[in-house]
C-alpha cells in the first residue's frame, strides 16, 4: 500500500499527507516539517500564499473550497493544519456522494 510510506508513528490518511505536502510547498517559516498540529499562523504564509494553496488543494482533490479573502483570512478560518485536513476530507466526501 502506497500510504504505508507516509505513515509515521501516527496514522495519517492519504489526504492528510497530500495536504501537508501542499502546505509545505507554500510555507515560508524556517521549519523543517509541517505537522498536523501546526498552527497556520506559525508557517509564515504571506499575501498570495493562501490563495495559491487553495488552488493547489482544489486541483489535487477536484473540489471547490468556499473562501472569500474579504471575510477573514485562512489563519482565521483554519486554526491548524489538521483543521484544513478535516475540511478537505469533508469536501472530498461530499464530492463522492452528492447530496440527495
Amino acid at each position: 500500500m502506497c500510504d504505508q510510506e507516509v505513515m509515521g508513528a501516527d496514522f495519517m490518511t492519504d489526504i492528510a499527507s497530500d495536504v501537508i505536502a501542499i502546505i509545505a510547498k507554500r510555507k515560508r517559516a524556517d521549519k523543517p516539517n509541517v505537522e498536523l498540529s501546526d498552527r497556520l499562523d506559525s508557517l509564515g504564509l504571506e499575501s498570495l500564499d493562501g490563495v495559491e494553496m487553495i488552488f493547489d488543494l482544489e486541483e489535487k482533490f477536484d473540489i471547490q473550497i468556499p473562501y472569500n479573502a474579504n471575510t477573514g483570512n485562512l489563519r482565521t478560518q483554519f486554526d491548524t493544519v489538521n483543521d484544513v485536513v478535516s475540511a478537505i476530507e469533508s469536501l472530498v466526501a461530499q464530492r463522492k456522494s452528492p447530496a440527495t
Binding site: 493562501g50 490563495v51 487553495i54 488552488f55 473562501y67 472569500n68 479573502a69 474579504n70
Partner: peptide, 8 residues
Amino acid sequence: EAMRVMSP
C-alpha cells in the same frame, strides 16, 4: 474568482 476577492 481564483484570487478570492470578489463580492458575490
